[in-house]
Design a protein around this nucleic acid. Structure first.
Length: 360
DNA sequence: CAGGCGTGGGA
DNA sequence: TTCCCAAGCCT
């Protein structure tokens, strides 16, 4: 495995350093995310947040902005929380103790093992999806449990080069022992592979049963108004927890399952309703009258697939008068001043086709 | 332990 | 188009 790694490992930016912080950032970014996707994010991140102190001191909004497009945004919040813990509790140095690592927010069994072995040279296993698949095939076990995997990999890990060994196992899974059509001819350990001997490598590990993902329709209010430098749009910030936590978006509301009787009138009504709610929030409840929102037009639908649900956004554009106030969770932002705000992909697509053509 | 939690790329 | 993911973690 070590010879395989020495010969076949890919050149990756986080393999050019021994800085535990940099390795931590790469591990968090790589959770459920492709290497090719991570590389540019990693480079930009290291430019902006080169050490735990700079990350700890940053505005959370900028942290999320740097993460924009990577997905699973809780990782970004957790990473900043981890940086703050590293600064305050560990003097700015990532702790090398496996227990202390696992206590950091966003660091679970895999990441703690990866950090302990790769960054600190400890002979512990690091079991991710690749390793699970490789071991399931080597053992010809359709569903190896966590305890068995930890035991077996822990027994195999090289005490002199634990980090390289763990990465070799992952690299093998990523480039040779792939989920579909594994290249057994190129595998350095195919002779000891029980699934290969039995011809069952295509069935290991057993694929998990897939669940039906719900498809919802969401009415979206694109409320625009003339501003000093062009059109502005009303955005609200999502709650810190849950889907797209802390990201900014046009106000939207679920109006039912896709395929049901969701007609255009229903969409317009839902959008207007949620727009008014966003504008009215944090208003003096007494003399505030609902502001006039002029229906402009229904914009093209945007279909988006999340990890666990599918959403068809039905944006409707309204014009609002000047002078409506903002708050901590509601802002008016120029279409050409969206840069600093963390905005999810689907919202980018909605906003991309939402700016009025006419001048102010 | 099941389910929530993003995104983009390849088959 | 549709499906399957890809270096998991948290509740």
């Amino acid at each position: 495995m070590l010879a395989f790694f020495d010969e076949r490992q890919r050149e990756l930016p986080w393999r050019e350093t021994s800085d535990p912080y940099r390795i931590l950032v790469s591990e968090i970014m790589l959770q459920q995310t492709r290497v090719e996707t991570v590389v540019p994010y990693y480079r930009r991140w290291m430019q902006r947040f080169p050490d735990p102190a700079s990350l700890a001191a940053a505005d959370e909004e900028e942290v999320l902005r740097q993460w924009q497009g990577l997905g699973y945004y809780r990782r970004a919040r957790n990473l900043q929380a981890a940086a703050r813990e590293i600064v305050e509790r560990w003097g700015g140095n990532v702790p090398g103790d496996a227990k202390a690592l696992a206590d950091l927010p966003g660091v679970g069994a895999y990441t703690a093992g990866a950090m302990a072995s790769i960054a600190f040279g400890q002979a512990v296993p690091a079991i991710d999806g690749n390793v699970r698949r490789v071991m399931a095939r080597l053992l010809d076990d359709p569903a190896p449990g966590a305890a068995l995997l930890a035991r077996e990999v822990g027994r195999l890990v090289d005490p002199h080069r634990p980090g390289d060994f763990n990465q070799a196992l992952m690299e093998l899974g990523a480039t040779v022992c792939t989920p579909r059509s594994p290249d057994c001819a190129a595998c350095p350990v195919s002779e000891g592979c029980r699934a290969r001997a039995a011809g069952t490598q295509g069935e290991r590990p057993r694929p998990p049963r897939k669940k039906e993902i719900p498809h919802r329709v969401e009415a979206v209010a694109v409320v625009v108004r003339p501003g000093p430098t062009g059109w502005e749009v009303l955005l609200r910030r999502r709650p810190a927890s849950g889907l797209l936590g802390g990201m900014w978006e046009c106000p939207g509301v679920d109006v039912g399952p896709h395929g049901s009787e969701v007609d255009e009138a229903c969409v317009v009504e839902g959008a207007q309703d949620v727009a008014l709610r966003a504008v009215m929030r944090q208003q003096p409840p007494t003399e505030m009258r609902p502001p006039p929102l002029l229906l402009d037009r229904v914009l093209p639908a945007v279909d988006h697939l999340f990890s666990h649900r599918r959403v068809t956004y039905r944006p409707v554009r309204f014009h609002a008068p000047a002078g409506l106030p903002a708050s901590t969770s509601v802002r008016w932002v120029g279409f050409h001043a969206l840069d600093p705000l963390p905005i999810p992909r689907a919202q980018e697509r909605i906003l991309g086709g939402a700016e009025p053509e006419e001048g102010v």
